Simulated scan of single mutants.
Amino acid sequence: MRAVALRAAFHVLRDLRLAAEYLRGFEWIPVSFWQPGPIVKDEARGVSLTAEEGFDLISYADVARGIVKIVEEGDGMWIGKEVGFVALGGKKVKSLPPSTFIWMLVGLLGYYMPSLWLVGRKMGL
């Protein structure tokens, strides 16, 4: 499933990777790179930060708390680094919203047929 999701988000992830490389070229910009897992509409359960990528489903409120933690924690210890978000406690979200699969289908079509990606962008998808 991870390989399918990475292919579906290929163009978006490539754009993010290029933007991160560009920002790293300016040492005077204090930037950190957030790496939450899939963000879902759910209640807040708490979040911790890690130097690993986040793969847990995480709520919007927990992502916001994680961003605040990045800023508040230790004298810029996350500056220039990738920060993973780990959802804490509570039940796991069992399913993704149906719109997720539509976005994945569009992304997969764009991966295997790049000209469709451009058509989708013009249509606002």
Rank of each mutant, 00 (worst) to 15 (best):
L49Y: 07
L49A: 08
L49C: 03
T50A: 09
T50S: 15
T50F: 01
T50L: 07
A51R: 13
A51V: 04
A51P: 06
E52N: 13
E52H: 14
E52W: 09
E52C: 05
E53H: 10
G54A: 09
G54Q: 11
G54C: 12
G54N: 11
G54W: 10
F55A: 10
F55V: 13
F55L: 14
F55Q: 11
F55P: 00
F55Y: 12
D56S: 13
L57E: 10
L57V: 09
L57I: 05
I58N: 02
I58P: 03
I58K: 05
S59M: 12
S59C: 09
S59D: 07
S59R: 13
S59G: 10
S59L: 10
S59P: 04
Y60W: 12
Y60C: 05
A61F: 02
A61Y: 01
A61Q: 11
D62W: 00
D62E: 05
D62A: 00
V63M: 06
V63G: 08
V63H: 06
V63L: 08
A64Y: 07
A64H: 06
A64W: 08
A64S: 12
A64G: 14
A64E: 06
R65T: 01
R65L: 07
R65M: 08
G66D: 08
G66T: 05
G66P: 01
G66R: 10
G66Q: 06
I67T: 09
I67K: 00
I67D: 00
I67Y: 02
V68P: 00
K69D: 09
K69H: 12
K69S: 15
K69Y: 06
I70S: 10
I70H: 04
I70R: 11
V71I: 15
V71S: 02
V71F: 14
E72I: 04
E72C: 03
E72D: 11
E73H: 11
E73S: 12
E73A: 13
E73R: 11
E73N: 08
E73D: 14
G74C: 06
G74H: 13
G74P: 01
D75W: 07
G76S: 04
G76L: 08
M77S: 11
M77R: 15
M77L: 10
M77E: 08
W78N: 02
W78P: 01
I79R: 12
I79N: 13
I79H: 09
I79C: 08
I79F: 07
G80E: 03
G80M: 04
G80F: 10
G80C: 07
G80P: 09
K81C: 01
K81T: 04
K81V: 03
K81R: 15
K81M: 03
E82R: 15
E82P: 05
E82Y: 15
E82S: 14
V83G: 05
V83M: 00
G84R: 08
G84Q: 01
G84E: 06
G84L: 07
G84A: 06
F85H: 13
F85N: 02
V86K: 15
V86A: 12
V86P: 02
V86Q: 14
V86G: 00
V86T: 12
V86R: 15
